[in-house]
Computed example of a mutant assay.
Amino acid sequence: MAPLQTSHAVHLAKCNLLSIFNERDATKRKQAMAESYATEMQMYEPDKVITGHDEISSTAGALLDAHPDWNFAPAGEVFVNHQIVTLNWTFGPVKGGDVFLVGEEGKIEKLWVMIEGVTSVRL
Rank of each mutant, 00 (worst) to 15 (best):
M1C: 10
M1Q: 12
A2R: 02
P3Y: 02
T6I: 09
T6E: 13
T6V: 06
S7G: 09
H8V: 11
A9S: 09
H11C: 01
A13F: 04
C15M: 14
C15S: 13
N16M: 11
L17Y: 06
L17D: 11
S19Y: 07
I20W: 04
F21G: 00
F21K: 00
E23T: 14
E23A: 14
R24Y: 08
A26M: 11
K28R: 15
R29Y: 14
R29D: 13
R29V: 09
S36I: 00
Y37P: 00
Y37A: 09
Y37T: 02
Y37W: 09
Y37E: 00
T39Y: 07
E40V: 05
M41A: 11
Q42S: 11
M43I: 09
P46L: 06
P46R: 03
P46D: 14
D47R: 09
D47V: 07
K48L: 04
I50Y: 01
H53M: 11
H53S: 13
D54V: 09
E55P: 02
I56P: 00
S57A: 15
S58A: 15
T59Y: 13
T59I: 02
A60S: 15
G61F: 00
A62T: 10
A62D: 08
L63Q: 08
L64F: 08
L64E: 02
D65G: 09
A66L: 14
H67S: 12
D69A: 15
N71Y: 07
N71V: 10
P74W: 10
A75V: 12
E77Q: 11
E77N: 15
V78G: 02
V78S: 00
V80F: 04
V80G: 02
N81W: 01
N81H: 14
N81R: 07
H82K: 09
H82I: 04
I84W: 14
T86N: 05
L87F: 06
N88Y: 11
W89Y: 15
W89D: 05
T90Y: 10
F91P: 09
G92K: 10
G92C: 12
P93T: 15
V94D: 04
K95G: 04
G96A: 11
G97Q: 10
G97N: 12
D98C: 07
D98S: 06
V99K: 12
L101N: 06
L101G: 00
L101D: 01
L101S: 06
V102S: 00
V102N: 04
V102Y: 02
E105Q: 14
G106W: 05
G106S: 07
K107N: 08
I108Q: 00
I108V: 13
K110A: 05
L111P: 02
W112G: 01
I115L: 13
E116W: 05
E116S: 08
G117Q: 10
G117D: 04
G117F: 08
V118A: 06
V118S: 02
V118Y: 03
V118K: 10
T119S: 03
S120Q: 07
S120T: 15
S120H: 13
V121T: 08
V121Y: 03
V121K: 15
